Amino acid sequence: MNRAERLSAVLDLLAEGGQVEVDQIVERLDVSPATARRDLDALAEQQLLTRTRGGAVAHSVAYDLPIRYKNQQNPEAKAAIARAASGLVPRGAVIGLCGGTTATAIADALMSRADIMEPSPEPSLTVVTNAINIAMQLAMRPQIKTVVTGGVVHARSYELVGSYVDAVLGSITLDLAFIGVNGVDPVVGPTSHDEREAAVNALMASRAAHPVLVADASKIDKRAFAAIGHRRLFPTIITDDAATPEQRQRLTDSGYDVIVA
């Protein structure tokens, strides 16, 4: 485990209980006490935690995630999709992330990458998002430039929606955009339960050189209320290995480049 991965792991330990001890880091990460203390000092310098005698405590967080994030379904599949999505992102890229649990997993995967988290005078990655929970995660990482769209907060998803989003997304370009869905039908295309979220997701995708759908197998062959752009907007979909060969073939026949995580 390199230093960047270790620092991320320390933050994960801190998130579990709100505090962490040097002895706990030594045991869980198999490092020396001196290394554990240096890592805590480094994170304290970045204002990511507060040092205490023998350990550290988390900074207070002023938000609580909606129930959809607490009771995430198919976490292993979404983690695999997130790793595959992260693998498409070169250092220095400008990417878009919509809201949702899969996009949140992608943010986690990006923050665990050593090449992105390596300290540098310039940002290693730029992320544009309309999800305020993702923005809060990324804001703690100075190596990542975080751009938040305007808009009105959707209480169910913590996504910013509405016409104010257009002002930001309409004035930028993205290398990649990762868009989650509530359903993806080979004929109809990607869909969302909420028409406001669908409109923002379609606009974000249209600003990207390479828009990518991210959907675990439970979303395939499903339709929701609102279409996310036209059917040909997305050339690529990332799904997990629970997708059947028949489902993958239907997506391929409809023109998608299917990546199985």
Score class of each variant (00 low, 15 high):
45 E>Q: 12
260 V>G: 12
117 M>L: 11
224 A>D: 04
110 L>C: 04
186 P>C: 13
58 A>D: 00
255 G>P: 04
192 S>N: 15
232 R>N: 01
48 L>I: 08
159 E>C: 05
23 D>C: 11
118 E>Q: 09
195 E>A: 15
175 D>T: 11
181 V>Y: 00
138 L>Y: 05
119 P>L: 07
82 A>V: 07
6 R>T: 14
125 L>Y: 05
156 R>L: 12
233 L>V: 02
208 A>H: 07
215 A>G: 01
122 E>P: 00
252 T>Q: 14
55 G>P: 10
256 Y>W: 14
86 S>N: 07
222 K>W: 00
243 A>G: 05
52 T>E: 15
92 G>A: 09
21 E>D: 15
240 D>F: 05
37 R>K: 11
184 V>F: 08
239 T>N: 09
140 M>Y: 13
187 V>G: 07
219 K>Q: 11
228 I>D: 01
3 R>C: 08
215 A>N: 01
30 D>L: 07
137 Q>V: 06
198 A>F: 01
13 L>E: 15
192 S>G: 10
67 I>A: 12
11 L>H: 12
195 E>V: 14
174 L>P: 10
24 Q>K: 15
201 N>F: 02
65 L>A: 10
95 I>K: 04
205 A>L: 07
128 V>W: 13
207 R>Q: 15
186 P>E: 14
123 P>T: 06
180 G>M: 04
48 L>H: 09
206 S>V: 13
105 A>D: 00
113 R>Q: 02
133 N>A: 06
29 L>F: 04
57 V>N: 04
210 H>Y: 11
105 A>G: 00
14 L>V: 12
59 H>S: 08
170 G>E: 10
188 V>H: 06
111 M>A: 06
51 R>V: 08
107 A>V: 01
129 T>P: 01
30 D>V: 09
241 D>I: 00
163 S>F: 07
132 I>T: 10
199 A>E: 06
212 V>G: 13
204 M>Y: 02
86 S>Q: 10
30 D>T: 09
129 T>S: 03
104 T>V: 02
43 L>K: 03
127 V>M: 03
54 G>A: 05
103 A>G: 00
